[in-house]
Design a protein around this nucleic acid. Structure first.
Length: 588
RNA sequence: GGGGUCGUAGCUCAGCUUGGUUAGAGCGCCUGCCUGUCACGCAGGAGGUCGCGAGUUCGAUCCUCGUCGGCCCCGCCA
């Protein structure tokens, strides 16, 4: 038995067709406009806003109570739907041609004045929004992000179901694996001193599902990585995880493109190209200084090593002779940057690890070089001429190893387009990046580590390199990049025990260790593992881009701050000694 | 682990450069007036540990150091 009237309509659905009907609405007081006589209230729920009217002449009782209404009070109101008088329609909102003349008002709950206005047009500090997330989540813009996220889940589920993929849940408490990101550990009460790990991804499980014959698997699943955060990265995030047997790169890419096409068509009514361009890792690095190039704008990197090699400037010539490169970007209209602005840029690239920044200012009659003490006018002219620099251009040159110089230039390129506001709106540039190196030598660990993950298959034609030059072998891996963001990544996997063991040994993992860490997978491969491969979509990032958000925090209901804290519930927190005792844990 | 930046009224910010009178504005809040508003309007009012701690100084919101917290980036993120 309810003590108040349940709604008969939501705050988003009244139209002229309802005029003359008596309706009941429930919701939150969004705005109060008390004109002394008439009181107008915008009533809000997640479907929209409806203007309700309290008139002292028509319904004295309701009007009297309405005087006490304040922001965020929860109310139930009943009244007659009226057409609004001409000239008072509000075409900004979908219910703006009607209003409800209230004769019955129940205050279901009062509310303290919120610590910040819930209007979309007010910018609120993010820490405050996160502390009072339940209020922040009432704002229509935040709600619409989460609703778009919901819609994306539904499109993805329907898509993968339609083409024969089976959704299977995999464990959240799993075995810790040594490779890759730092694991979140969960102590075992029943097994003193032993720990579960939260999955960095369901990688091994989905491969084993392929061995089991499930053929086509997908899952929308939380993954956990105990690493530092970024605007597009937090320790728990959501993947659309996909794996497929008897598939090669093209099959996975085709299915991925289909999923993206479906999502963008349904959610944004945007037609993506039927296939996405493919760029090798090497090209991506050399042109954009990144393995996730943003191709919406130019400002591409150019290689000046041939001029630098013959230069009298030893910093340049030595680095090239040692196998490094001298490369740069040519920024239009930047020649008018002042010395102090350029000093700031120099400090910036130094903070990225560059030795320094050499710049060439191209004016109408000459080329001025910041290292003119060491670089002759002829050389400066040659640098400028090589890629047809125009008056007004500023050429920024970085020297270093191939990897380092290009990475720094890639970061500098993004910094410059942001400063100069050169990023075009409304572009959706999808791009596959392929031919990643399989392994990379870790100076820190003094061994090869997997660039993608240790289950990624080498390219067939590079198999022989595994013996001679493992660092040069390429992987059957592919990343999907959208506007400079990695939104999906995957690979064709190793499916034989022999190759998998070989990979472990290349990575300096002893057979006994491989057996203890990954024995279950190696064992599974002995019993008829089909060739297989897959991909995982970074769902948070995709929604972030589709909603135009600057951070994934805006598309996650309860996100962590950049220090990994949850400001609303104050996690992580201390625990009782009793809990620690049960878990056999002592704090150092 | 490193770099940058921010922290002043409930909110968004100014003030700090060059230390010194009573620390201001808009919004919100409270009170009054107001019957067609819609980010209502008008009048009045309340509201401050200048993040926290130490130092320099006759005197610190302001300078210095430390610390806590937010954001961005590098490293890290198979």
């Amino acid at each position: 038995m309810s003590t108040y009237k349940k709604r008969t309509v939501t705050c988003g659905e009244l139209r002229e067709s309802y005029v003359g009907k008596t309706v009941t609405l429930t919701g939150w007081v969004d705005k109060r406009r008390d004109l002394g006589g008439l009181i107008f209230i915008d009533l809000r729920d997640r479907y929209g806003k409806t203007q309700i009217v309290f008139s002292p002449e028509r319904h004295v009782g309701a009007h009297e109570i309405a005087k006490s209404l304040r922001s965020e009070y929860v109310i139930s109101v009943t009244g007659l739907v009226n057409i609004r008088p001409k000239e008072t329609e509000n075409l900004e909102i979908s219910t703006g041609k009607v209003e409800v003349d209230i004769n019955e008002l129940t205050i279901l709950n009062k509310a303290e004045t919120p610590p910040f206005a819930l209007d979309d047009y007010v910018d609120i500090n993010e820490d405050l929004r996160l502390k009072y997330r339940y209020l922040d989540l009432r704002r229509p813009s935040v709600q619409s992000n989460l609703i778009m996220r919901h819609n994306t889940y539904q499109v993805a589920r329907k898509y993968f179901d339609r083409i024969g993929f089976i959704e299977i849940e995999t464990p959240i408490l799993m075995k810790s694996t040594p490779e890759g990101a730092r694991d979140f550990l969960v102590p075992s009460r029943l097994h003193p001193g032993k720990f579960y790990a939260l999955p960095q991804s369901p990688q091994t499980y989905k491969q084993i599902l392929m061995v089991a014959g499930f053929d086509r698997y997908f899952q929308i699943v939380k993954c956990f990585r105990d690493e530092d955060l970024r605007a597009d990265r937090q320790p728990e995030f959501t993947q659309i995880d996909v794996e497929m047997s008897f598939a090669d790169e093209e099959d996975i890419q085709k299915i991925t493109e289909g999923a993206i096409a479906d999502i963008f068509k349904t959610i944004l009514n945007y037609e993506v190209p039927s296939t996405f361009p493919i760029m090798t890792y090497k090209t991506a690095m050399e042109r954009f200084g990144s393995d996730k190039p943003d191709t919406r704008f130019g400002l591409e990197i150019r290689d000046y090593s041939d001029i630098a090699k013959a230069s009298g400037f030893r910093v340049f010539s030595d680095i090239v002779k040692k196998g490094g490169i001298v490369a740069g970007i040519n920024v239009p209209n930047l020649a008018l940057y002042t010395r102090s602005q350029l000093d700031v840029l120099t400090d910036y690239v130094k903070s990225l690890g560059a030795g320094g920044l050499v710049y060439l200012r191209v004016t109408e009659d000459k080329v001025e070089c910041s290292a003119a003490k060491f670089i002759t006018q002829e050389e400066s002219n040659a640098f400028a001429k090589k890629f047809d620099a125009k008056p007004g251009d500023l050429i920024l040159l970085i020297s270093g190893t191939w990897q380092k110089a290009l990475t720094i230039l890639g970061t500098l390129r993004l910094e410059m387009v942001q400063r100069l506001n050169l990023i075009p709106e409304g572009k959706w540039n999808f791009l596959w990046v392929t031919d990643f190196p399989l392994l990379e030598y870790s100076e820190e660990e003094k061994r090869f580590v997997a660039v993608h993950h240790p289950f990624t298959a080498p390219k067939f034609e590079d198999l022989s390199l595994l013996e001679s030059e493992p660092g040069k072998a390429r992987a059957r891996a592919y990343d999907l990049v959208l506007n400079g963001n990695e939104i999906a990544g995957g690979s064709i996997r190793i499916h034989t025990q022999e190759v998998q063991s070989k990979m472990f040994s290349l990575m300096g993992i002893a057979p006994e260790e491989a057996k203890s860490k990954f024995g279950f997978l190696l064992d599974a491969f002995k019993y008829g593992a089909p060739p297989h491969g897959g991909i995982a979509f970074g769902l948070d990032r995709i929604i972030m881009l589709m909603t135009g958000s600057k951070s994934i925090r805006d598309v996650i209901a309860f996100p962590k701050t950049s220090s990994g804290m949850s400001l609303m519930d104050e996690a992580p927190s201390n625990v009782d000694q009793k809990q620690l005792d049960e878990l056999h844990i002592r704090i150092k």
